[in-house]
């Protein structure tokens, strides 16, 4: 999950002092908010750096629910944000301003408190000896920052990155330092054909090498990856970014359709939560 399209209130926490901090759900301080790409009022891409929660066991591909206290009652849902990177010093998330929630996130100031719960969901498979192809669409690049840092043999990993905004709007630098990254920007319609062709070629090659394909991005991008992964028989995982309200498996709003390959027979050809059963799914176990 890269960034989330949907968007929450903690005023009651202010009214009655009761921040009940536990391991999974805590108030974190905003350390800073750094615009990427175009700076100033124009920017819509931000790295949000928060004080570190105590989550030593997090996995790249997991996400967090982030809800600034300033959401008040007006914006009820937290925003699910992919974990970009986490150290003992900080938690870094990344988002693009798309609606009222992410707009409000972009107005956060250092020192402000945000409620955060996580780490949520599963993570991407790390199979260190296997050639691994990362496919990122736009904000889908976010979880791969942590992934390439965590991977013990980065020389087995490469990336294709499709995006619309200028490449400097995205956190590519730390990925570029470690693995070869092919950046394909879509500015005119023909560029999309080029991206699709590249995806086809690279997924095909990866399948031939018995490699691992990992993808994260918007739904049309994942649909294309899914189609090629199935037709070439590639081992592939896709990270979905559906709208969600709770992040803990209760609201049943983020569900996605499974295939007949889903392991739990109760939910074959049924709906499962992206937040708790994903956000990373094996391609053959879900339908598009």
């Amino acid at each position: 999950m890269g960034v989330i399209f949907c968007g929450v209130d903690y005023r009651w926490l202010g009214e009655v002092k009761n921040a009940m901090n536990n391991e999974k759900c805590c108030d974190l301080s905003v350390l800073d908010l750094v615009p990427f790409g175009q700076t100033g009022a124009e920017s819509i891409f931000y790295a949000l750096r928060l004080s570190a929660p105590n989550w030593p066991a997090w996995q790249p591909g997991q996400f967090v629910m982030v809800r600034p206290h300033s959401f008040g009652y007006e914006i009820p849902w937290a925003r699910p944000l992919g974990i970009c990177h986490m150290t003992t010093q900080h938690l870094i998330c990344f988002f693009q301003v798309l609606g009222r929630g992410t707009k409000r996130l972009s107005q956060l100031r250092p020192g402000e408190q945000v409620a955060v719960w996580g780490p949520l969901g599963n993570g991407f498979a790390i199979e260190k000896d296997r050639p691994t192809l990362l496919l990122a669409g736009g904000m889908g690049i976010v979880p791969f920052v942590g992934y390439v840092h965590r991977h013990p043999q980065p020389w087995n990993v490469s990336m294709v990155f499709g995006h619309r905004a200028a490449v400097d709007c995205y956190p590519v630098d730390s990925i570029n330092e470690r693995i070869p990254l092919d950046s394909l920007r879509e500015t005119v319609p023909g560029d999309l054909d080029n991206l699709i062709f590249t995806l086809q070629e690279r997924i095909h090659d990866c399948a031939d090498q018995d490699g691992l394909v990992l993808a994260c991005g918007p739904r049309p991008f994942l649909r294309t990856v899914h189609r090629f992964a199935i037709s070439f028989g590639a081992r592939a995982q896709l990270s979905l970014e559906n709208q969600m309200a709770c992040g803990v498996g209760a609201c049943l709003g983020c569900v996605t359709k499974t295939s007949d390959k889903w392991a739990d027979k109760r939910h074959k050809d049924g709906f499962v939560q992206v937040c708790t059963k994903g956000p990373v799914f094996w391609a053959d176990q879900i339908q598009f």
Partner: peptide, 27 residues
């Protein structure tokens, strides 16, 4: 008996609230 529930999208955030049409998905 188990119910599949409704086809997504099932939830929408609104001002100070939300809409849902989950359709009683349960096992």
């Amino acid at each position: 008996t188990p119910r599949l529930g409704n086809t997504p999208p099932r939830i929408v955030e609104t001002t100070a609230g939300m809409l849902n049409s989950v359709g009683l998905q349960n096992d």
